[in-house]
Design a protein around this nucleic acid. Structure first.
Lengths: 332, 332
DNA sequence: TTGTATGCGTTATCAG
DNA sequence: CTGATAACGCATACAA
C-alpha cells in the first residue's frame, strides 16, 4: 500500500519556510552564507517535507553527473567482482555513484554500453582490458572524459591504465614450474585477450627452456567444469604432462578435484596452478599455487585516478603497474 | 592524448541540418513523423557531429530516468553477483540501466544509498533481504516508485517480493540430514537476517526430531576461512557432531577441505552441507550437498516485476516464491 | 544576508 | 510535416 507520492521540489520547501528557492538551495550547498536562524528554518522545512534534491537537474546545470560508468565482462566471476568492490567502495567515499554494465565478453555490447553511459553524461569511465572496438575508442576519446583501462598495460592506452603485465605473469608461472623440474607443461584458458597474453608469456618461457607445451582452449566466459574436462583431456592424451597452468582459479579448482577423482596425487603426479588468487585458492587441499593480482586494488586505484583527474589534478603517472606475485603453495 | 571535446547538442545538429531542434528530436524519437528526406538529412548531421542525446535532460522533462537502483550486501559474494547478473541482463533488454550500491552488511549504508538513488530519480529499486531501517522503509514508500525486495518472503513487504523461504530451506536441510541418520548436528553461519531464518528452520526441525544441535556463529560478510575454523571448533569440542550445515557454499568448501586435512572421510566421518549451489558445489570432491536457490532467476524476476509495473500493468502476484531444492550429492 | 533573472538540454504542446 | 514556446528542477551571476 503506497501513499500518494507528493513531489516536493525546491519551490515547495521554499514556500513552507517562507523564503525564496535560492535560499533553500543555499541551505544545502552553502549553509555558511545563511543567517543561522533562516538556516534552521529552512532545514526544518526540508525535514518536514522529506525533500530530496533532484540530481538530474543538478547535473544538467552543473554539467557534472557525479556518476562513473564501469564495464566488466561479467560480474559472475569473482575476480571482476573484487575489482568492482574496490571501485565502488572508493567511489562511494569520493561521492560518486556507479553505473554498471556487463558485456558477457561480447565486444558489441561494450559499444552500446559506452554509448548509453555517455548519454548519461558519466564523469568518467572504467573499462576492463585494452581490447576495444575502434568505435568505442573513438567515442571515449571524443567524449573528453577521463577513462581508466584495467587489468592490462596496453602500449597505447586510451587515457589512463591500472593493471599488470599478463605476459610477464604467464612467463613467471612457466619459469616457476620449470624451476620445479617440470619438462612437459599444459595450459588451459579462454580466448579473451588477457588470457592470450598470459599464454604468450607462458609459451615464451617454455620455448626458452626447451620445454614441451600442450595448450587446451576453452570458451571465454568459461564454465568452471571446463577445468575438469580440459585436464581430463590432457591426461587422457598421455603426453606425459606433469604440470598444468589454468588461466583462472575456478578452472584450477575444477581440475584439482578431477585429479582427486582420478586418484592422482597433486602435486606429485600432477601439479596444478591457477590464476587470480581468489580467496578459495588458499582454502583448497592441497592449497592452490596461483598468481596473485591485486584485483580489489585495481578498482581502488582506478577510482582514485578518476577522482584526481576530475579534481583537475595532474596525474603523476597515468600508467600504474600493480604487478603480480606467484603464490607458491602446495599444488605445484 | 585527447582532442578538445566539442559538446554537441540538439541545437548544433539542427544548425548543421538546417532545421529546428524539434525536428532533430523527432528524428530520434518519432522518425515516422518526418518527411523521409528531412529524416535522412538530420540523421546524417547526427552521424557527422557524433551527437549523443543528454539523457539527464530527457529524464528531467520526461520524469523518467530509465535507471533502476540495486543494493546488495556485497558483490564479493558469488551468490549476489549471480542475482545482479540476472538483473542487469534483463534490465538491459528492457532498456534500463543499473545503478549499483553495496552496504557491506551495514544498515546505515543502505539508508544513504537509498537517499542517493532517490535523488537520482531512479524509476525503481531492488533491495536485498527484508530487514531495513524504518527510514529506508519510509523513504521507499514515500517515493511511490516500485520496489522489489529479494532473497526473502517477508510477511509485510514494502511493495513486491521475489525470493524463497529461508526458514523452510533450513528446515528442509535439517530433515534431510536427520533422514540420513544423523543425530548430532552442527550449524555454521553469520548474523544476518536471512541466515538467522535458516537457522530457525534448521533448529525447529532438529528439535522436532529430538536431535542435538550445536551452532557456531561467525561474522556477517564472512571470510571463507571461517568455515575451516568453525568446523575445527566443532570437531575439537568432541560433541560427536556427525553432520554440519554451513550457511553458504564458500564456508562449506573451507570446511570440507579442513576435513580432508584432518583425514576425516566425508561423508562417513563428517557430513558437510552448504547453501546456494554455487557452480563450485558440483565440482568439489566429494560433490557438495547444498540448497539450490535460483539466484540468477531472482534477479530476472525482479527486473520483470519492475518493468511490468513501470509499464503500468497490474502485477498478477507481487509475491513470487521461487522455492529451493535440496541438492543431495556426495558430501552429506 | 537574501532575492531575481536566466539558462542547462531536452520534449510536450500548440501553431503554422 | 515542421517550427516556436514553455516547461522540467536546479544553480550561476548578479542585484538589492
Amino acid at each position: 500500500m503506497k501513499s500518494t507520492p507528493v513531489k516536493v521540489r525546491l519551490t515547495e520547501v521554499a514556500k513552507l519556510a517562507k523564503v525564496s528557492p535560492m535560499t533553500v538551495s543555499r541551505a544545502l550547498n552553502a549553509p555558511e552564507l545563511l543567517k543561522p536562524e533562516t538556516l534552521q528554518k529552512v532545514l526544518k522545512s526540508i525535514e518536514q517535507s522529506g525533500y530530496v534534491p533532484d540530481l538530474n537537474a543538478t547535473s544538467l546545470v552543473s554539467q557534472k553527473s557525479h556518476i562513473i560508468g564501469a564495464i566488466v565482462p561479467t560480474m559472475n566471476n569473482a575476480i571482476f567482482a573484487q575489482t568492482l568492490l574496490g571501485l565502488q567502495q572508493r567511489l562511494d567515499a569520493l561521492g560518486y555513484q556507479l553505473l554498471l554494465g556487463q558485456t558477457q565478453y561480447q565486444l558489441e555490447q561494450e559499444d552500446s554500453l559506452v554509448r548509453a553511459f555517455l548519454g548519461r553524461r558519466v564523469d568518467g569511465m572504467v573499462l576492463t582490458g585494452s581490447q576495444h572496438s575502434p568505435l568505442t575508442r573513438q567515442r571515449m576519446v571524443a567524449s573528453g572524459i577521463p577513462v581508466v583501462e584495467t587489468w592490462d598495460l596496453p602500449a597505447h592506452p586510451i587515457d589512463m591504465v591500472v593493471g599488470f603485465s599478463n605476459l610477464k605473469a604467464g612467463q613467471a608461472m612457466a619459469e616457476y614450474l620449470i624451476q620445479r623440474g617440470h619438462r612437459v607443461l599444459g595450459f588451459v584458458g579462454g580466448r579473451d585477450g588477457r588470457t592470450q597474453m598470459r599464454y604468450r608469456g607462458f609459451q615464451a618461457a617454455a620455448k626458452k627452456a626447451g620445454v614441451q607445451l600442450h595448450p587446451v582452449w576453452v570458451a571465454a566466459g568459461v564454465q568452471m567444469d571446463q577445468g575438469r574436462h580440459a585436464i581430463g583431456q590432457l591426461i587422457d592424451a598421455r603426453k606425459a604432462v606433469t604440470a598444468v597452468f589454468l588461466s583462472n582459479d575456478a578452472l584450477a579448482l575444477s581440475a584439482l578435484m578431477e585429479c582427486h577423482r582420478r586418484r592422482l596425487r597433486v602435486p606429485q603426479d600432477m601439479a596444478i596452478a591457477g590464476f587470480a588468487d581468489l580467496e578459495l585458492a588458499a582454502e583448497l587441499e592441497p592449497a592452490l599455487t596461483t598468481v596473485k593480482v591485486h584485483a580489489t586494488r585495481i578498482g581502488e586505484v582506478a577510482a582514485d585516478m578518476l577522482a584526481a583527474r576530475l579534481r583537475g589534478e595532474k596525474i603523476a603517472s597515468p600508467r600504474v603497474d600493480l604487478g603480480f606475485e606467484v603464490m607458491a603453495r602446495e599444488s605445484a
